[in-house]
Design a protein around this nucleic acid. Structure first.
Lengths: 477, 477
DNA sequence: GGGTATTTGTCCGTATGTATG
DNA sequence: TCATACATACGGACAAATACC
């Protein structure tokens, strides 16, 4: 062993013990030191290398923990037999084709309806809660958690739903999962294996694309929301609906339609309403629209929501609230499932909510989105009065219809080439609808406030829509 | 209308407009105002109630937004037609079943095969990576990520698979998701909508329980793993298999069966093999068993694995590796999906792996599990030679068969009452199999090293199995 | 039938208390 | 502590529909 030479650089950024540890580990794995060899004692090696005993001790300790060497107290350290994972020599050199998508946002102005404003996220607070959790970690949090999600988080969600949406529910009724898309199949399975689901048209496009293409029934939407008359003519037994702010048209399900829908559901035991309340937090005019669930006397509404818009999309926390009558069958069927959101994230979020940071954050974001909304509406109305706007008042996107004789995807292409991403409403159609004019979603969540006006001007310029310099008329409600 | 009396309390904590809104909403829903009635004008009502016009205006605006009333500009507000709400009298009052599991571990000795050793998890290092991520957070990480998962993590997984399992794949082939249970339906959909899946019997019980109950075909398992002859007699086109360490029997799929299985798959275009390599990291004797995927020349193997055993169950990170031929259809079908693991966790894990902590941790854990494994085997063999042990050599659990004339669930019950959790093999049966003797899974991941011997003694005592005090024979490899 | 005053919804500016940072 | 911003509430300007003479 005295043949081994370790290159230790005192000025390296790597600590000395790590250099020593790496050197010895390499020597052992490359069989430069025979198995069973006694290593030099801490004192000897420290003297030889002109470093402290402690440094050697740390390096040896690390090797010991990982099983490269074994310690015989008062005798010495000995090299262990290694069964490290084998390096399988492959015939061809390892070549991994780099086909990675460009991470850089290709569109300077991206009006994607799913983007949120990231400027105001309270990273510092979030980090504090993450840090707190790991500072005094519960080792139990490493193990698999409750299938419905952590009880602490479900409690906070129940409180939040009561205070902000008037929904009275017990944490037991809540099921947490990573994304609406993954909760839906659970709900479908829960109700009936051969359920037929009705969807809004246009509507949230991921739903039909995911599982249900063949069984999904499209139902039209007008300014009062889903046309329940149409639903009544189908044989669907489940309806997926966004009553507070129909996606993407922004329609609010009217009171008449609400009762009609609840009546429809009450007429058969296997009929259920899936209420997706995805962005109820952001209503720019008046109070939030009450949830359908609150009117439900017959346990026919399954309330579904997420933190995607209200906190961040990347956390992937969604949840649903089961009517008590469905609880038992849920527990029978899904006791073998496990919650899909990491437990640490669930507890970070739960603590974040518990201390009131979530509602504060919501208040902050409401203001920000309202400002962006107002700016966008104002820009469009002042300069482009020929463009009709629908679906404002709430959420993080609007719909615009432009008086042009081109196809939506042509206009989208033109916009894209000019660095602007817009999203044709036809992308959200389950069944074709003839729109009088090309219609697009403009999500303003991901566009900076100061970028909104320039972005709109650029968009209209590339579409060949002239700016109306006359002082625009005012916006009608 | 002048008959209606609204109780407005100026000093109430509820704002005036909300009191008015609630009052009118109640009146409308309870049919106290007839449909079509013209409501009093803003000014009239404001005068009458001695409040401001604006207050009335806001209340009317809210009712308008929710569709209880309609506005005819310059004429007035009119009550809309609303159906009566149904109310189905439920027989029993709604009561929520309090089913929260006791958070405290009810079993001092829990041999659950899914439990891991939590004592050695490097919380400090993990916290450091979490902290680093939030110290200089990329705001982009709040937005939705790539559907397949973060490229950085997929790169690390590809490197890891190459180095530890000899699997050559591109990060593009990897899809990350929260748990095997959620990735499986994706794979099934990818291959064929009407796929029929064959499962090992006994096998990972969650699989059939989750989606596939009616379509799943059980295939028997012997000491050489899945009996491929049986598979060939079915019309299944997908087989889910754990070749390296069959769950739960521990059998290794023999070389002969491997080629037979690959040949089976090559005989039809829609045949695929799902190789679940869930605990290949922990093999206690000899080199790791090579992955089936490495033998596959025909792009018929979809490799599936997770960090559940190797890191922690609660992180919920699983992934699969698609053969290049399936990549395109994946991207067509699932481009609208989003990855189900929070981006922050993905990056923490990626950085953790990048800096070598994952392989360090694996080396450390291998050593720990081997010690527990050896202790468990040694205890059983020394003191209870009548108990036959199978499925050792790898993973984090073994199977024991006890020479008792009782039913498995009776024995389980007895054990539970004595504070010991054991898991009958019948829990993992898709189709009943007659075992000569009651057989149980003993997972030693979650039992402390020093608890193993006392736990076994206590278990055997409560089952009435006597300790053999003769010095036990040595364990045969 | 035409002119005018009134009523109406809509829109806007502003004062006050309160919560937020 | 102080400044800011917002929710709430108030009064009034405007234009369209209506009623009245």
């Amino acid at each position: 062993m005295d043949m081994l030479i370790f290159k230790l650089e005192k000025n390296s950024k790597k600590p000395l013990y790590e250099q020593l540890y790496m050197g010895m580990k390499d020597a052992i794995t490359h069989k430069q030191i025979e198995v069973g060899t006694k290593l030099p004692s801490k004192r000897k090696l420290a003297d030889f290398l002109n470093i402290s005993q402690t440094t050697v001790e740390i390096a040896y300790g690390q090797l010991l923990a990982e099983g490269y060497i074994a310690s015989k107290p008062r005798i010495g350290f000995f090299v262990e037999e290694i069964e490290e994972l084998p390096f399988i020599e492959s015939k061809q050199p390892k070549k991994i084709i780099e086909t990675r998508k460009n991470e850089n946002e290709p569109y300077p102005y991206n009006f994607h309806p799913g983007k949120i404003d990231t400027e105001s996220f309270p990273f510092a607070i979030w980090r504090k809660y993450a840090k707190d959790l790991f500072d005094f970690p519960s080792k139990e949090y490493l193990q698999v958690g409750e299938p419905q999600g952590e009880y602490e988080l479900r409690t906070e969600i129940a409180n939040y739903l009561y205070q902000s949406r008037g929904i009275i529910c017990d944490p037991e009724q809540i099921v947490i999962g990573s994304g609406t898309e993954h909760l839906l199949p659970m709900i479908l399975r829960l109700i009936e294996t051969n359920s037929k689901i009705a969807l809004e048209n246009p509507g949230y496009s991921a739903i039909p694309r995911i599982h249900l293409a063949n069984k999904a029934v499209p139902i039209s939407v007008d300014e009062d929301g889903l046309i329940v008359d149409e639903l009544e003519k189908t044989d669907a037994n489940i309806v997926y609906i966004t009553p507070s702010h129909q996606f993407p048209t922004g329609a609010v399900l009217s009171a008449a339609r609400r009762t009609q829908l609840l009546n429809w559901a009450s007429k058969a035991a296997n009929r259920y309403i899936l209420e997706d309340d995805y962005d109820s937090e952001f209503r720019h005019i008046g109070k939030p629209i009450p949830a359908l669930q609150g009117m439900d006397q017959n346990e026919k509404v399954i309330y579904l929501s997420t933190f995607t818009k209200s906190l961040m999309p990347s956390l992937r926390v969604a949840y649903f609230v089961l009517p008590p009558a469905l609880l038992q069958s849920y527990q029978e069927i899904f006791s073998y499932y496990s919650a899909t959101v990491p437990r640490f994230d669930q507890h970070i979020l739960a603590n974040f909510m518990k201390d009131g940071h979530f509602s504060k954050h919501l208040n902050r974001m409401r203001k920000i989105y309202r400002k962006k909304h107002d700016k966008l509406i104002h820009t469009l109305e002042s300069f482009y009065p020929n463009i009709s706007i629908t679906g404002d008042h709430a959420g993080m996107h609007i719909l615009i219809s432009v008086p042009l004789a081109k196809l939506e995807h042509e206009l989208k292409q033109i916009a894209n080439e000019n660095g602007i991403a817009v999203y044709p409403v036809s992308d959200y159609l389950l069944k074709p609808i003839d729109y009088d004019q090309p219609t697009f979603l403009l999500g303003y969540g991901g566009v900076a406030l100061e970028d909104i006006e320039p972005a709109i001007h650029k968009l209209m310029t590339c579409w060949g829509i002239n700016r109306n310099t006359k002082k625009g008329k005012s916006h009608k409600l």
